[in-house]
Design a protein around this nucleic acid. Structure first.
Lengths: 133, 133
DNA sequence: CGGAATCCTCGAAGATACTG
DNA sequence: CAGTATCTTCGAGGATTCCG
């Protein structure tokens, strides 16, 4: 807001929040807006899924990446991991109440991609044409 | 270098079913939810800024990363680049109408990080305690 | 001032193999 | 089935230099 002050080492250009909010906010965003997390969260929003079920949805993901992503989401309290004892090991992942609170913001972002994807595509084409000539 | 040895990374389009929407949506999300784009967009929401002004805001960003990020945002039609002829070259970056439509979804996400950061921190502490013992 | 061009590193992500 | 354990590669990102 009132951020006309320019300093070399402590930029204060942020509307309404302090530097720490901004930095930690971005750090947290990095944790949850990565390549797969949004898709995984959406998948789990409808119903709990098992490891390989998720893997099948996220076509192209490796087991390692999926494991890492699920761990991070679990650590951040977004999803829950439940081991189902049976003849074959089964692990069910489900969304937590905290994870539910992310559904709306993510949906808003996703809706944006749907609504404006054509505008973006058009802008890309124009940019590419402009820079190729 | 030969492309033979290189594993083509898996195609992102999947025939037919509902995952396709999410996949393409994710591709677009990857373009705009990267490490710096959100912060840059927020910065430009208040007012247009010049290259080094943005650089000063994004503490820690390198010139190269900033250039790449600005190019991508410009290509996607989110921001506009305007060269101001003067004794010294000046380049002003501003948000486009299309970019404006992203402000609300991003703000929602950012507000989430503010609102629930303590919950996440708590979840992390519990997870770490659980997995250390 | 606002970049482009190089060089370089370092860690994320892939491939593969093994296990409870 | 749901992972772990290694090894390797590869490319994004940092540091530096130069330039209109």
């Amino acid at each position: 807001m009132s951020a006309n002050n320019r300093q070399a080492h402590s930029p204060e250009y942020y509307p309404g929040h302090s530097c720490e909010d901004k930095a930690s906010g971005r750090l947290l965003l990095d944790q949850i807006t990565d390549k797969w997390s949004v898709s995984i969260l959406f998948a789990l929003c409808s119903k709990p899924l098992r490891f390989n079920e998720i893997k099948r949805c996220m076509d192209g993901i490796t087991q390692k990446s999926l494991t890492q992503c699920l761990r991070r989401l679990e650590r951040n309290g977004i999803i829950a991991r439940r081991v189902i004892p049976s003849s074959q090991i089964a692990v069910e992942y489900s969304i937590t109440p905290l994870g539910r609170t992310l559904e709306a913001p993510f949906q808003a972002l996703f809706n944006w991609t749907i609504e404006y994807s054509s505008d973006v595509t058009l802008a890309q084409a124009e940019f590419d044409a402009r820079t190729t000539e």
